[in-house]
C-alpha cells in the first residue's frame, strides 16, 4: 500500500460518522497509505477540541453506547491521536468554519485550515476518495 493515496471527506458530525472516518483513516495509514481528511460542515465536530470527545449517537440509536463499550472499541479521541501520530493530514474547511463561527484555536492542534481547491489539489491523484 505504499504509494497509495487516500482522500477522505468528513461532512457529518455524529459518533457513527467519526468511527467510519477514523477507522478507515488509521487502517489505511497502518497499511502505509498516505491519508488526508477534509473536514467540512458538521464533520468539523470530529476535530473540535471539545465536541470530538462527546459526539452524539443518531437519534433512537442511543442503546448502541453499551455495544461500543462491550466491543472495547477505542474512543474517538484515541483514534484521532493515533491518526495524527501516523501522519494523517487533517484539513479543516475554511468556508464552513466561517459559517459555523469556528476559529482554528477551537480545533485540535496539528490541523491545517484550507479551502476546497486545496483538497481538490490533494485528491487529484488519490487512488481512493471516500466520503462520509
Amino acid at each position: 500500500m505504499a504509494n497509495t493515496k487516500v482522500a477522505i471527506i468528513a461532512a457529518n458530525g455524529g459518533l457513527f460518522d467519526a468511527y467510519k472516518v477514523f477507522n478507515l483513516a488509521t487502517a489505511a495509514a497502518a497499511s502505509d497509505a498516505e491519508v488526508g481528511i477534509f473536514f467540512t460542515f458538521e464533520g468539523l465536530n470530529l476535530i473540535h477540541k471539545e465536541a470530538h470527545k462527546n459526539l452524539p449517537l443518531p437519534e433512537g440509536k442511543e442503546h448502541f453506547e453499551e455495544g461500543f463499550k462491550q466491543a472495547n472499541v477505542p474512543s474517538i479521541a484515541e483514534l484521532l491521536s493515533i491518526a495524527q501520530e501516523m501522519g494523517v493530514k487533517l484539513l479543516a474547511c475554511q468556508m464552513t468554519m466561517d459559517v459555523m463561527k469556528l476559529e482554528k484555536e477551537q480545533l485540535v492542534g496539528g490541523i491545517e485550515v484550507a479551502g476546497a481547491a486545496s483538497f481538490i489539489e490533494y485528491a487529484k491523484d488519490a487512488n481512493m476518495t471516500l466520503t462520509f
Binding site: N23, T26, A27, A30, S31, A71, N72, V73, P74, L79, I82, M86
Partner: peptide
C-alpha cells in the same frame, strides 16, 4: 487480545 478494529492492525504496524 481484547482490542477491536482497527487497533490490531494499528498495533501490528507499530
Amino acid at each position: 487480545k481484547g482490542l477491536a478494529c482497527p487497533m490490531p492492525v494499528v498495533r501490528t504496524k507499530k
